[in-house]
């Protein structure tokens, strides 16, 4: 009896999460997959017909938006690494007793709703807003200069909105480095820079890896930043999908686009993992 219970315990532990995922992830995914292969319209209803045409249409009509989404996502991710790594490094190694305070400060803006934060960026960046207005009045910028509705605004918004998801995993990886390992490098004739390059950086890679996963994926499929901060030339694939679902109500195309994006992201992630030598990276991460 006891042995039976011991054997069942792991399954009991996974049960709630498993049911949750089955209902809210597996079922919708299957429904969407089937939807992407149906044909018809909202008025007459959709029928399953193995209709691959939605995929062909999606790719032909919206390949610009797909590529743009990946480029924006990548640019935002790179900006976050550049901004986030020093922050994570500083908190991990120089934060002293106040590490948790700094982490809290980092997360504080994110207690405000995602959409509200983006809208406040819209105020900040607007053509005669509090940032550009004074600069234009002083004659430092030409009067027709704008940030809003440009790719810079959208990429900036994306980079800002997902920053904590980059900083936190990097911080965890950096914080876990044994200071004596750094002393050992220093003892073995490495100066500060070499110690960083040969020891700190490689040991922080699992954190960067996790950070990239957690920011690139949502940034590439985001639609809020593009619709609030962007213009007609910055439409991302997320906006297209949202439009297809809610406005045009062309469910098959919307679903097909979603799957296309998912497939592209998966391929990208696996290529990235392979390039970094994930086995290694995940190995270190699992320590």
């Amino acid at each position: 009896m006891r042995r039976l219970r011991a054997a069942l315990t792991p399954y009991a532990l996974i049960f709630p999460g498993g049911v949750w995922l089955a209902i809210f992830f597996v079922v919708p995914t299957v429904v969407m997959l089937s939807l992407s292969l149906q044909s018809g319209n909202v008025a007459d209803g959709f029928v399953f017909t193995w209709n691959w045409q939605s995929y062909v249409d999606g790719l032909t009509n919206y390949h610009d938006q797909i590529i743009r989404s990946l480029v924006y996502g990548l640019a935002a991710t790179l900006i976050q690494i550049v901004i986030g790594f020093p922050v994570a490094y500083w908190i991990a190694f120089k934060g002293g007793r106040h590490k948790s305070v700094y982490l809290f400060l980092l997360l504080l803006p994110f207690l405000v709703s995602f959409v509200l934060r983006t809208i406040s960026w819209q105020f900040l960046l607007s053509d005669n807003g509090m940032l550009l207005g004074p600069l234009k009045d002083l004659g430092l910028l030409p009067h027709d200069f704008r940030v809003l509705a440009t790719p810079y605004a959208v990429i900036g918004g994306l980079a800002y909105n997902f920053l904590p998801f980059m900083v936190l995993p990097m911080y965890v990886a950096l914080e876990r480095i044994d200071p004596r390992v750094l002393e050992a490098a220093n003892d073995l004739y490495a100066n500060k820079f070499q110690t960083f390059l040969r020891v700190v950086l490689p040991l922080s890679l699992p954190g960067v890896f996790a950070g990239v996963l957690m920011t690139f994926v949502p940034a590439s499929s985001d639609y809020v930043n593009a619709s609030v901060l962007g213009g007609t030339n910055t439409t991302m694939i997320g906006n297209v999908i949202q439009n297809q679902y809610l406005v045009t109500q062309d469910y098959p195309t919307a679903s097909a686009l979603s799957f296309t994006l998912m497939a592209l992201l998966l391929v990208g992630i696996f290529a990235y993992a392979k390039a970094l030598g994930t086995e290694d990276v995940l190995e270190v991460a699992a320590r």
Partner: peptide
């Protein structure tokens, strides 16, 4: 003189090997 410029080496208590 900093450690990297001293001609002595140390064996640490917890070994402090480079895990990667």
């Amino acid at each position: 003189v900093p450690p990297n410029k001293r001609d002595v080496n140390m064996v640490f208590q917890s070994y402090a090997l480079f895990p990667h």
